[in-house]
């Protein structure tokens, strides 16, 4: 229809140009050769992919995937009960919490990483607190380290998880939980066997979004992590910028995309209508 075409021309042109074309380019470049002075040499070769067939890359890929899944699990484990409790509050309180939560988005990933660096450093308050509580023997810097990376990532991803879960939990009919209570379920059991099954779809969506965002996170692992445990995102960034090896970066990106598609496929299967 003419009207549809008229409306969609602008978005179609821009989106195809800025999403589709770069993606196809990326694919093409992954089969090209690196050019130290420029970007890439237009030949067709599998060198970039062959360069990935080593333990190091496989290790980084698996590590990144595992970390993404685990951090996503932690984020959703915190975010789901949090969103549930928040949606039981009165409207005013909800707005306050939402604005507060969205404020944490106002810290760019750079400052996010930086602030965790300060907090978890030797002089930072947090380790002194741990020492005072007797959890650690004496205050030592927790960064660079895996814990710091995780804390920073959870912080960055939590608002997205909450926003994904919010519609379903806000619209959850209160009678459903009340019915469970009058049938004999304690509030905790009602949460487990009524609220969670009712929100299966959004739960999976929140998990997938968190995992994908973590997978693509560049700054936190770079700044807060040790070089041995640098994630795939960092390796890709390094290859492109410092290593001047764009085909390699492209090849790694394609592998990451494959991983993300698998994740998407599994989540679609998990939320299929029985």
């Amino acid at each position: 229809m003419l009207r549809v075409a008229a409306w969609l021309t602008w978005p179609a042109v821009v989106l195809c140009a800025t999403v589709l074309v770069p993606f196809l380019l990326l694919l093409r470049i992954s089969f090209a050769a690196p050019d130290p002075s420029g970007l890439w040499i237009p030949v067709v070769t599998l060198d970039a992919y062959r360069g990935l067939l080593n333990r190091e890359f496989a290790g980084a890929l698996l590590y990144s995937l595992a970390m993404a899944l685990l951090v996503a699990a932690v984020t959703v484990s915190i975010g789901f009960p949090f969103t549930y409790l928040m949606t039981r509050l009165n409207r005013r309180a909800q707005v306050v919490w939402l604005v507060f939560l969205l404020m944490s988005l106002s810290l760019s990933d750079v400052l996010n990483a930086f602030s965790w660096q300060v907090m978890l450093s030797k002089r930072g308050g947090f380790v002194s607190l741990l020492a005072a509580l007797g959890i650690v023997a004496r205050p030592e810097s927790l960064t660079p380290g895996d814990g710091a990376v995780w804390a920073s990532l959870v912080y960055g991803v939590l608002p997205f998880a909450v926003v994904t879960l919010y519609p379903a939990l806000s619209r959850l009919p209160p009678e459903i939980v009340e019915a469970a209570r009058t049938l004999g379920a304690s509030p905790g059991r009602a949460f487990r066997n009524v609220v969670i099954p009712m929100c299966r779809g959004p739960l999976v969506a929140a998990f997938v979004i968190s995992a994908v965002l973590v997978l693509g996170a560049y700054v936190s692992p770079l700044v807060l992590g040790r070089p041995q445990s640098w994630t795939l995102a960092v390796l890709i960034g390094n290859a492109a910028l410092a290593g001047h090896d764009v085909p390699r970066a492209a090849a790694m990106s394609v592998c990451m995309l494959v991983a993300v598609s698998l994740l998407g496929g599994v989540s679609a299967w998990a939320t299929r209508r029985r």
């Binding site: 770069p22 994908v212 993300v260």
Partner: peptide, 24 residues
């Protein structure tokens, strides 16, 4: 289809998009 494309752009890891855009 455009909606799916837009959603895809958000879901893909930022680093991948960054490289893609840079190349583009």
């Amino acid at each position: 289809w455009l909606e799916t494309l837009a959603q895809l752009a958000f879901v893909l890891p930022l680093i991948v998009l960054a490289i893609g855009f840079m190349v583009f």
